[in-house]
Protein backbone atom coordinates (compact mmCIF):
# COMPACT_ATOMS: atom_id res chain seq x y z
CA UNK A 1 0.00 0.00 0.00
CA UNK A 2 3.05 2.30 0.00
CA UNK A 3 2.26 3.42 -3.57
CA UNK A 4 -1.18 4.74 -2.61
CA UNK A 5 -0.12 8.45 -2.86
CA UNK A 6 1.48 7.83 -6.26
CA UNK A 7 -1.62 5.97 -7.52
CA UNK A 8 -3.79 8.76 -6.16
CA UNK A 9 -1.70 11.45 -7.86
CA UNK A 10 -1.61 9.51 -11.14
CA UNK A 11 -5.39 9.17 -11.12
CA UNK A 12 -5.80 12.91 -10.43
CA UNK A 13 -3.60 13.62 -13.44
CA UNK A 14 -5.63 11.18 -15.52
CA UNK A 15 -8.79 12.99 -14.54
CA UNK A 16 -7.35 16.24 -15.83
CA UNK A 17 -6.08 17.91 -12.64
CA UNK A 18 -3.07 20.16 -13.25
CA UNK A 19 0.24 18.49 -12.20
CA UNK A 20 1.10 21.07 -9.51
CA UNK A 21 -2.37 20.86 -8.02
CA UNK A 22 -2.36 17.08 -8.17
CA UNK A 23 0.94 16.97 -6.27
CA UNK A 24 -0.39 19.39 -3.67
CA UNK A 25 -3.59 17.37 -3.20
CA UNK A 26 -1.56 14.15 -2.89
CA UNK A 27 0.72 15.73 -0.28
CA UNK A 28 -2.23 17.10 1.68
CA UNK A 29 -3.98 13.73 1.64
CA UNK A 30 -0.83 11.93 2.79
CA UNK A 31 -0.46 14.51 5.54
CA UNK A 32 -4.04 13.96 6.70
CA UNK A 33 -3.39 10.23 6.85
CA UNK A 34 -0.19 10.76 8.79
CA UNK A 35 -2.00 12.97 11.31
CA UNK A 36 -4.35 10.14 12.14
CA UNK A 37 -1.46 7.64 12.11
CA UNK A 38 -3.39 5.53 9.63
CA UNK A 39 -2.80 3.96 6.26
CA UNK A 40 -4.31 6.09 3.44
CA UNK A 41 -6.04 3.09 1.87
CA UNK A 42 -7.86 2.34 5.13
CA UNK A 43 -8.87 5.95 5.69
CA UNK A 44 -9.79 7.03 2.17
CA UNK A 45 -10.43 3.72 0.40
CA UNK A 46 -9.00 2.80 -3.02
CA UNK A 47 -6.83 5.59 -4.47
CA UNK A 48 -8.63 5.81 -7.80
CA UNK A 49 -12.09 6.03 -6.24
CA UNK A 50 -11.02 8.69 -3.75
CA UNK A 51 -9.37 10.68 -6.53
CA UNK A 52 -12.58 10.62 -8.55
CA UNK A 53 -14.61 11.53 -5.48
CA UNK A 54 -12.30 14.44 -4.74
CA UNK A 55 -12.37 15.72 -8.31
CA UNK A 56 -16.16 15.53 -8.28
CA UNK A 57 -16.26 17.49 -5.03
CA UNK A 58 -13.81 20.10 -6.27
CA UNK A 59 -15.63 20.60 -9.53
CA UNK A 60 -19.05 20.85 -7.91
CA UNK A 61 -19.21 24.69 -8.13
CA UNK A 62 -18.31 24.45 -11.80
CA UNK A 63 -21.39 22.35 -12.35
CA UNK A 64 -23.44 25.45 -11.72
CA UNK A 65 -22.04 26.99 -14.87
CA UNK A 66 -24.08 26.22 -17.94
CA UNK A 67 -23.06 22.78 -19.20
CA UNK A 68 -24.08 21.45 -22.55
CA UNK A 69 -27.14 19.42 -21.63
CA UNK A 70 -29.66 18.50 -24.21
CA UNK A 71 -33.40 18.38 -23.86
CA UNK A 72 -34.63 14.82 -23.42
CA UNK A 73 -35.75 13.34 -26.74
CA UNK A 74 -38.60 10.96 -27.56
CA UNK A 75 -39.42 8.04 -25.27
CA UNK A 76 -37.23 5.04 -26.14
CA UNK A 77 -38.35 2.67 -23.39
CA UNK A 78 -41.46 2.60 -21.29
CA UNK A 79 -42.26 0.03 -18.60
CA UNK A 80 -45.63 0.16 -16.86
CA UNK A 81 -46.49 -2.20 -14.03
CA UNK A 82 -44.07 -4.84 -15.30
CA UNK A 83 -43.80 -8.01 -13.26
CA UNK A 84 -41.98 -11.31 -13.52
CA UNK A 85 -42.79 -14.61 -11.88
CA UNK A 86 -41.05 -17.95 -12.21
CA UNK A 87 -43.70 -20.51 -11.30
CA UNK A 88 -44.82 -19.48 -7.81
CA UNK A 89 -41.89 -17.20 -7.09
CA UNK A 90 -42.34 -13.51 -7.77
CA UNK A 91 -39.12 -11.82 -8.86
CA UNK A 92 -40.53 -8.28 -9.02
CA UNK A 93 -43.86 -6.58 -9.54
CA UNK A 94 -45.12 -3.15 -10.54
CA UNK A 95 -41.96 -1.84 -12.18
CA UNK A 96 -42.41 1.51 -13.90
CA UNK A 97 -39.65 3.20 -15.86
CA UNK A 98 -39.56 5.67 -18.72
CA UNK A 99 -36.31 6.50 -20.48
CA UNK A 100 -36.08 9.10 -23.22
CA UNK A 101 -33.38 9.72 -25.76
CA UNK A 102 -30.56 11.67 -24.11
CA UNK A 103 -31.15 10.04 -20.72
CA UNK A 104 -29.30 7.45 -18.66
CA UNK A 105 -31.16 5.15 -16.28
CA UNK A 106 -29.51 2.91 -13.73
CA UNK A 107 -31.09 -0.27 -12.38
CA UNK A 108 -29.69 -1.08 -8.94
CA UNK A 109 -30.49 -3.58 -6.23
CA UNK A 110 -29.13 -6.53 -4.31
CA UNK A 111 -28.00 -9.77 -5.90
CA UNK A 112 -30.91 -11.86 -7.12
CA UNK A 113 -33.47 -9.04 -7.12
CA UNK A 114 -34.03 -9.42 -10.86
CA UNK A 115 -31.87 -6.67 -12.41
CA UNK A 116 -30.62 -8.82 -15.25
CA UNK A 117 -34.08 -10.35 -15.77
CA UNK A 118 -35.57 -6.88 -16.09
CA UNK A 119 -32.92 -5.91 -18.63
CA UNK A 120 -33.61 -9.07 -20.64
CA UNK A 121 -37.31 -8.15 -20.56
CA UNK A 122 -36.41 -4.69 -21.89
CA UNK A 123 -34.44 -6.38 -24.68
CA UNK A 124 -37.28 -8.78 -25.50
CA UNK A 125 -35.25 -11.90 -24.70
CA UNK A 126 -37.47 -12.72 -21.72
CA UNK A 127 -41.22 -12.15 -21.58
CA UNK A 128 -42.76 -10.30 -18.67
CA UNK A 129 -45.48 -12.03 -16.64
CA UNK A 130 -47.48 -8.83 -16.49
CA UNK A 131 -47.49 -5.15 -17.36
CA UNK A 132 -46.76 -3.25 -20.53
CA UNK A 133 -43.45 -2.70 -22.31
CA UNK A 134 -43.01 -0.25 -25.13
CA UNK A 135 -39.63 -0.02 -26.75
CA UNK A 136 -37.91 1.51 -29.73
CA UNK A 137 -37.04 -0.98 -32.47
CA UNK A 138 -33.26 -0.48 -32.62
CA UNK A 139 -31.78 -1.83 -29.43
CA UNK A 140 -28.28 -2.90 -28.40
CA UNK A 141 -27.83 -5.43 -25.61
CA UNK A 142 -24.62 -6.11 -23.68
CA UNK A 143 -24.87 -9.13 -21.35
CA UNK A 144 -23.01 -9.48 -18.08
CA UNK A 145 -20.88 -12.32 -19.42
CA UNK A 146 -20.75 -14.53 -22.49
CA UNK A 147 -22.21 -13.17 -25.68
CA UNK A 148 -19.07 -13.77 -27.71
CA UNK A 149 -17.74 -16.73 -29.72
CA UNK A 150 -14.49 -17.94 -28.16
CA UNK A 151 -12.83 -19.06 -31.39
CA UNK A 152 -13.41 -15.86 -33.36
CA UNK A 153 -11.29 -12.71 -33.38
CA UNK A 154 -12.69 -9.26 -32.64
CA UNK A 155 -12.81 -8.34 -36.33
CA UNK A 156 -14.66 -11.56 -37.13
CA UNK A 157 -17.17 -10.67 -34.43
CA UNK A 158 -17.63 -7.26 -36.07
CA UNK A 159 -18.22 -8.99 -39.42
CA UNK A 160 -20.72 -11.44 -37.89
CA UNK A 161 -22.74 -8.88 -35.95
CA UNK A 162 -22.49 -6.41 -38.83
CA UNK A 163 -23.96 -9.02 -41.20
CA UNK A 164 -26.82 -9.58 -38.75
CA UNK A 165 -27.51 -5.83 -38.89
CA UNK A 166 -27.24 -5.72 -42.69
CA UNK A 167 -23.80 -4.09 -42.86
CA UNK A 168 -21.22 -5.12 -45.45
CA UNK A 169 -18.15 -6.79 -43.86
CA UNK A 170 -15.67 -3.98 -44.58
CA UNK A 171 -17.89 -1.32 -43.06
CA UNK A 172 -18.68 -3.50 -40.04
CA UNK A 173 -14.98 -4.09 -39.36
CA UNK A 174 -13.97 -0.43 -39.71
CA UNK A 175 -16.89 0.68 -37.52
CA UNK A 176 -15.97 -1.90 -34.89
CA UNK A 177 -12.31 -0.88 -34.82
CA UNK A 178 -13.31 2.79 -34.58
CA UNK A 179 -15.66 2.12 -31.66
CA UNK A 180 -12.96 0.04 -29.96
CA UNK A 181 -10.48 2.93 -30.04
CA UNK A 182 -13.00 5.01 -28.09
CA UNK A 183 -12.62 2.47 -25.30
CA UNK A 184 -8.82 2.77 -25.56
CA UNK A 185 -8.59 -0.65 -27.18
CA UNK A 186 -6.92 -1.69 -30.41
CA UNK A 187 -8.20 -5.17 -31.35
CA UNK A 188 -5.46 -7.64 -32.24
CA UNK A 189 -5.88 -9.24 -35.65
CA UNK A 190 -5.04 -12.75 -34.49
CA UNK A 191 -6.32 -12.68 -30.92
CA UNK A 192 -9.41 -14.80 -30.36
CA UNK A 193 -12.06 -13.88 -27.81
CA UNK A 194 -11.08 -16.78 -25.56
CA UNK A 195 -7.52 -15.43 -25.42
CA UNK A 196 -8.64 -11.95 -24.31
CA UNK A 197 -8.61 -10.80 -20.72
CA UNK A 198 -12.00 -10.44 -19.02
CA UNK A 199 -11.92 -6.66 -19.39
CA UNK A 200 -10.99 -6.76 -23.07
CA UNK A 201 -13.75 -9.27 -23.75
CA UNK A 202 -16.20 -6.89 -22.11
CA UNK A 203 -14.94 -4.09 -24.37
CA UNK A 204 -15.66 -6.37 -27.31
CA UNK A 205 -19.12 -6.98 -25.85
CA UNK A 206 -19.72 -3.24 -25.60
CA UNK A 207 -18.61 -2.60 -29.17
CA UNK A 208 -20.87 -5.39 -30.44
CA UNK A 209 -23.80 -3.86 -28.59
CA UNK A 210 -23.17 -0.49 -30.22
CA UNK A 211 -22.07 -1.65 -33.68
CA UNK A 212 -25.44 -1.14 -35.38
CA UNK A 213 -25.97 2.31 -33.83
CA UNK A 214 -29.00 1.45 -31.68
CA UNK A 215 -31.26 4.12 -30.21
CA UNK A 216 -31.44 2.28 -26.90
CA UNK A 217 -28.47 0.61 -25.19
CA UNK A 218 -29.08 -1.99 -22.49
CA UNK A 219 -25.93 -2.71 -20.48
CA UNK A 220 -25.75 -5.42 -17.82
CA UNK A 221 -22.81 -4.55 -15.54
CA UNK A 222 -20.58 -4.23 -18.57
CA UNK A 223 -17.53 -2.99 -16.66
CA UNK A 224 -16.65 -6.37 -15.08
CA UNK A 225 -12.91 -6.83 -15.39
CA UNK A 226 -12.22 -3.21 -16.38
CA UNK A 227 -9.21 -1.50 -14.84
CA UNK A 228 -9.83 1.84 -13.19
CA UNK A 229 -8.90 3.87 -16.27
CA UNK A 230 -11.23 1.89 -18.52
CA UNK A 231 -13.95 2.13 -15.91
CA UNK A 232 -13.76 5.93 -16.08
CA UNK A 233 -13.62 5.78 -19.89
CA UNK A 234 -16.71 3.58 -19.83
CA UNK A 235 -18.79 6.11 -17.91
CA UNK A 236 -17.51 8.91 -20.14
CA UNK A 237 -18.66 6.80 -23.08
CA UNK A 238 -22.08 6.32 -21.48
CA UNK A 239 -22.46 10.08 -21.12
CA UNK A 240 -21.21 10.59 -24.68
CA UNK A 241 -24.00 8.27 -25.87
CA UNK A 242 -26.47 10.25 -23.80
CA UNK A 243 -25.26 13.52 -25.27
CA UNK A 244 -25.64 12.01 -28.72
CA UNK A 245 -29.35 11.55 -27.98
CA UNK A 246 -29.36 7.86 -27.19
CA UNK A 247 -31.11 6.26 -24.25
CA UNK A 248 -28.95 4.11 -21.98
CA UNK A 249 -30.07 1.68 -19.29
CA UNK A 250 -27.27 0.32 -17.09
CA UNK A 251 -27.58 -2.45 -14.54
CA UNK A 252 -25.08 -1.73 -11.79
CA UNK A 253 -24.31 -2.53 -8.20
CA UNK A 254 -21.81 0.32 -7.81
CA UNK A 255 -23.55 3.32 -6.37
CA UNK A 256 -20.94 6.03 -6.63
CA UNK A 257 -21.75 7.00 -10.21
CA UNK A 258 -25.46 7.42 -9.75
CA UNK A 259 -25.25 11.16 -9.15
CA UNK A 260 -24.80 11.65 -12.90
CA UNK A 261 -27.62 9.47 -14.17
CA UNK A 262 -31.12 10.73 -14.87
CA UNK A 263 -33.16 7.89 -13.36
CA UNK A 264 -32.39 5.33 -10.70
CA UNK A 265 -34.63 2.28 -10.41
CA UNK A 266 -33.93 0.42 -7.18
CA UNK A 267 -35.38 -3.08 -7.47
CA UNK A 268 -34.19 -3.90 -3.96
CA UNK A 269 -36.58 -1.37 -2.43
CA UNK A 270 -39.65 -2.84 -4.00
Amino acid sequence: MTDWPQAFEAELLRLGVQPGRARRLADETAQQAAETAGVPAEIFGPAHLYARHLVAELSAPAALSPRTRYEPGPVMLSLTGVSKRYRRQTVFTGVDLTVRGGEVAAIVGANGCGKSTLLRICAGLTRPSGGTVKRTRRVGFVPQDGGTAGWLTAEEHFTLFGAAAGMVPGRARSTGVHLATRLAWRPGRQQRAQQMSGGTRQKLNLVLGELHAPDLLLLDEPYQGFDQGTYVDFWQQVFAWRDAGRAVVVVTHLLHDLQNVDHVLDLGER
Binding site: A123, G124, L125, V139, G140, F141, P143, G146, G147, T148, A149, G150, W151, L160, F161, A164, A165, G166, L208, G209, L211, H212
Partner: peptide, 13 residues
Protein backbone atom coordinates in the same frame (compact mmCIF):
# COMPACT_ATOMS: atom_id res chain seq x y z
CA UNK B 1 -20.55 -23.07 -28.45
CA UNK B 2 -22.82 -20.55 -30.19
CA UNK B 3 -25.46 -20.53 -27.48
CA UNK B 4 -24.36 -17.17 -26.03
CA UNK B 5 -24.03 -15.42 -29.39
CA UNK B 6 -27.30 -16.47 -31.02
CA UNK B 7 -29.72 -14.34 -28.94
CA UNK B 8 -27.55 -11.27 -29.56
CA UNK B 9 -27.46 -11.97 -33.29
CA UNK B 10 -31.26 -12.21 -33.26
CA UNK B 11 -31.52 -8.95 -31.39
CA UNK B 12 -29.17 -7.30 -33.88
CA UNK B 13 -31.44 -8.35 -36.74
Amino acid sequence: ASRGVDPRLRLTG
